[in-house]
């Protein structure tokens, strides 16, 4: 299987003054196959959003490559990319549809905007395309003339999805698409996303805090910690048998309703290390890690293969 997205040694460092650099994304390498759903998890500040903005080409990388079906996208400036033909191939569904929709655009305008810009459609063909998208995402056509404040959370989420798939992207990046929704609405939206993926043959990069949702939706999971991928693997295996201590802490922190299923609680002490000029010889997790042996502060563990399709960056995995 050829990968749809091939990320190699991608890095983004922000200058924070006094010649100090914040390593937001640090030499990250991974692929996403065609039709695959990859989950990206990690705590706030770990670089998920920066990574997503790099892939989505809203931000220019410091180094590394972003190849979409063989085409190198990293060389192109983010500004130029907006008008590039490849723009339509990567689209994004933003976190809170209420905040990301233009309040002065009707639902129809919001969905039509990317089609108008990237497909140069107008008039009757544009209108019928917008209606078809509303049908696909389960948004009643009579709601197309409404403004975001006249729509419910679930309806806004549908508009956000409709506008993202409007230009038939190959890769859809979903940034916590259901975080603002009630559980009953969340179910409907997750099922819609699953169905659209099959119908349109898209690949998903699914960013979420909710590990229970990631477990249900994703084929493979990437765990990020302070700019590095510390573990990756098939979702079912990773959840059943996490190898990196950070992944273990993440999974043991998932609220578990059934007391019999609660595994030993693993709580992280301490504060994360600073992402500003991090010591290249110290494991990023050192200080919070329950293991934390001398070797961890002398040698940065690299991401290595520990089992078929499973990679872990820990000396002791």
């Amino acid at each position: 299987m050829t990968a749809l997205l091939d990320i190699a040694e991608l890095a983004k460092r922000f200058d924070v003054g006094n010649k100090r650099l914040l390593h937001a994304v640090d030499e990250v390498t991974f692929t996403i196959g065609r039709g695959e759903t990859v989950g990206l998890v990690g705590e706030s500040g770990c670089g998920k959003s920066t990574l997503v903005r790099l892939i989505n080409r809203l931000l220019d990388p410091t180094s590394g490559s972003i190849r979409l079906a063989g085409t190198e996208l990293a060389d192109m400036r983010a500004r130029a990319f907006a008008g590039n033909a490849n723009r339509a191939r990567i689209q994004m569904v933003f976190q809170d549809a209420g905040d990301s929709l233009n309040p002065r655009y009707t639902a129809a305008d919001a969905i039509a905007d990317p089609i108008r810009r990237l497909r140069k459609m107008s008039g009757a063909s544009l209108k019928s395309r917008v209606e078809a998208l509303a049908d696909m995402t389960g948004l009643p056509r009579e709601l197309l003339s409404r403004f975001p404040h006249q729509l419910s959370g679930g309806q806004k989420a549908r508009v956000g999805i409709a506008r993202a798939i409007a230009v038939e992207p190959e890769l859809l990046i979903l940034d916590e698409p259901t975080a603002a929704l009630d559980v009953s609405v969340q179910v409907v939206i997750l099922k819609l996303l699953q169905q659209l993926k099959h119908e349109l043959g898209m690949s998903y990069l699914f960013v979420s805090h909710d590990l229970n949702v990631v477990r249900l939706l994703c084929d493979r999971v990437l765990v990020m910690y302070l700019g590095k991928i510390v573990e990756s693997g098939p979702a079912a295996e990773l959840f059943a048998d996490p190898r990196h201590p950070y992944t273990r802490a993440l999974i043991s922190a998932i609220p578990q309703a059934d007391p019999d299923k609660r595994v030993g609680r693993l709580r992280l002490g301490g504060e994360p290390r600073s992402p500003i000029d991090p010591d290249p010889t110290v494991c990023r997790f050192y200080g919070r890690c329950p293991k934390g042996e001398p070797r961890c502060s002398a040698e940065m563990p690299v991401l290595r293969t520990v089992a078929p399709a499973r990679h872990v960056a820990c000396h002791f995995a």
Binding site: E43, S44, H209, L211, A249, A253, I254, R265, R267
Partner: peptide, 11 residues
């Protein structure tokens, strides 16, 4: 909050 932080706060 992150799940790890959530767990610490709830504890």
């Amino acid at each position: 909050l992150d799940v790890t932080t959530q767990a610490v706060i709830m504890d």
